[in-house]
Each structure stands twice: as structure tokens, then as C-alpha cells.
């Protein structure tokens, strides 16, 4: 298979999504601030969406279903980002820090 015909291949998208997922996992376990972890989780959600869209394009009988799922993932991700960022701001107001090392005591 030529390298210029890669976009017509299911496995290309699956490999790319796996790489993005791995980057998200790496960011999630190594970041020490809450916002950094939120950014990494957005990468994981993007990888899941790419998988949905790739199977939707190449194997699924009805190509609208994967698009519907991806749009719902986007809506859930937007809601998750809004809630997560407001929690970050509330935490910062109480602790004057968003470092996960400083947040080990949970008593408000």
C-alpha cells in the first residue's frame, strides 16, 4: 500500500487514535496540576471520537450513527470541561493552589 493512500485505510485511524490515547494516559499520570490532567483527558476523549468516526466510515452500515455518537461525546466533553474548570477555580480559591500534592486533605 502506498503511503499516499493511507487515508483510505481503517488501521491508520486506529493507530493514530491509540497514539493519542497513550499521550492522554501519559499526561494524566504525570501532570501535577488539575488543569494539566483535564487537558490530558480531552486528548483521551478525542481518541475515542476518532475511533467512533473511523468505524463509522469504514465498517458501519449506517454512517450517520457514528456522527451522532461523536456529537454527543462533544456535548458531554463540553459539560465535563465546564464542571471541571469550575471545580478547579473553587479549589484554587480555597487552597491558593491547583497542585495535586497540596490537595491531599479533603476536609473543606
Amino acid at each position: 500500500m502506498s503511503i499516499l493512500a493511507l487515508y483510505n485505510n481503517l488501521n491508520t485511524f486506529l493507530y493514530l487514535a491509540a497514539l493519542l490515547f497513550g499521550m492522554g494516559i501519559y499526561g494524566l499520570v504525570t501532570r501535577r496540576t488539575l488543569i494539566g490532567m483535564l487537558i490530558a483527558s480531552e486528548l483521551i476523549l478525542a481518541a475515542a471520537s476518532i475511533n467512533f468516526m473511523a468505524f463509522n466510515r469504514f465498517t458501519a452500515p449506517d454512517p450517520t450513527v457514528g456522527q451522532v455518537f461523536t456529537l454527543f461525546i462533544m456535548a458531554i466533553a463540553a459539560a465535563e470541561a465546564a464542571i471541571g474548570l469550575s471545580i478547579v477555580i473553587a479549589v484554587y480559591r480555597n487552597y491558593k493552589s491547583i497542585d495535586t500534592e497540596d490537595l491531599v486533605e479533603l476536609k473543606g
Binding site: 499520570v29 501535577r32 496540576t33 488543569i35 478547579v88 477555580i89 491547583i98 497542585d99 495535586t100
Partner: peptide, 24 residues
């Protein structure tokens, strides 16, 4: 929204994200 949260909640000196914890 994330950029706004960084401006609101992350002071300049704490934006360094060095490694910490057992899995870093």
C-alpha cells in the same frame, strides 16, 4: 475556557509542571 481557567487559577510561578508522585 481552559485558557481562561489558567489565567484565573494558575499563578505564574506554579505553572511549572515538574514530575511528582510514583507514576511520574
Amino acid at each position: 475556557a481552559i485558557a481562561f481557567a489558567i489565567m484565573l487559577a494558575a499563578p505564574e510561578e506554579s505553572q511549572k509542571t515538574g514530575p511528582s508522585g510514583p507514576l511520574s
